[in-house]
Design a protein around this nucleic acid. Structure first.
Lengths: 202, 202
DNA sequence: ACCTGAACACCGTTCAAGT
DNA sequence: ACCTGAACACCGTTCAAGT
């Protein structure tokens, strides 16, 4: 018997990464809030309990999945003016979260994910670079953050799931406008709200 | 046998109102997202299935409950300047929604409740009275609405449930500030964002 | 008409057992 | 160490039965 064959090829050989990847596929297909440990197990060709050897709970798995989604987003142009950075940040965030229904509400409902926490200072930087003093910069970012996650929670619920749905083209819920127009308007309000707070008005 | 006695006093005699009231009590106690048809039945001293003779589904019941909460809120001063009206609206909305954890996320995730839809035009009026043209008024309201429901979703999740919790005094999640400060700051940004869009700048 | 009780098709998760 | 299979304590809801 040749014992130097590579490790079994057909065995699933689970790992945290493999599980998160499968969860991403299932979440994209059925929606973030309808992801089930049993659906995940089917996707992996494995028993419902198998995943629990690599993640502590469904809660922790969802956090890993959410982080993977948030990290997979277009970076913003660090040399652009702050108004443009804010706009890019908003569209990149919306676009990466928009194709997972229920994700916005999920993220809203629990502590910041590690990825968000890690990016916190960089996000506040946009408002620091605008010229706001530290505390106002943090408050302005909190306002923007709240708005964006509310937007994702509200605007991604009713659409049919389209792969690679672009932020534009979809109709908004509250007003007769496209999502793109709504984001542009919201960002513009926050930009003006920020300008009005700058220590030195022109 | 005297048959003219009033209808049985001990029998629960369910009705939609009685059920919604009981659901409000349970939701306040355990949180909106942990309300269960079986918990509701216990509160009513009745079987898990009894409520289904008066509401079509849990979904419809939650909508009735959410509407009851939204309708039970401080009215705004119709004679105040629009900036003050917006501020009052924001605090009244936050205060009525804040004591039901999970309510913000629930409302974000589905179509507008009848109560919100009914109050829509009156809410947009605040921005009309500010001087915005119709479409901008609607977009501004949508921005404000999204921000507020995101805020409720985010800021009401981790606090211990206190009855009649006031909007102030509680610490915000994203920034070292009280919820009152956060709401004031957010409203101020939206006010300035609105002013910047007025057709006639002073 | 209104409520009960058992049951069904789901959940997340525990736990003993297999390899 | 890793996975399975049965089971537990929950869900929302259907359905036949009682009154």
């Amino acid at each position: 018997v040749i014992s130097s064959t590579p490790p079994k090829e057909r065995a699933p050989q689970l790992s945290q990464d493999v599980i998160v990847d499968a969860a991403l596929r299932v979440a994209k297909r059925v929606g973030f809030d309808r992801l089930t440990m049993r659906l995940l197990a089917d996707e992996l060709g494995v028993t419902a309990m198998a995943a629990y050897h690599h993640v502590a709970s469904k809660e922790q798995l969802l956090e890993l999945v959410a982080d993977a989604i948030i990290l997979d987003r277009e970076p913003i142009d660090l040399d652009a003016p702050w108004e443009e950075q804010l706009r890019q940040h908003a569209f990149a965030l919306f676009e990466c979260l928009a194709s997972y229904p229920g994700l916005g509400a999920f993220l809203l409902e629990r502590p910041l994910t590690p990825a968000v926490r890690r990016g916190y200072s960089q996000s506040v930087d946009i408002f620091r670079r605008a010229g706001l003093p530290e505390r106002d910069a943090q408050l302005a970012y909190a306002t923007y953050h709240t708005y964006m996650f509310g937007l994702v929670g509200m605007e991604t619920r009713f659409r049919p799931l389209k792969r690679r749905a672009r932020a534009g083209g979809d109709a908004a819920i509250l007003v007769d406008a496209t999502t793109t127009e709504l984001i542009d308007f919201g960002v513009e309000m926050l930009v003006e709200g920020t300008r009005s707070r700058l220590p030195t008005r022109r």
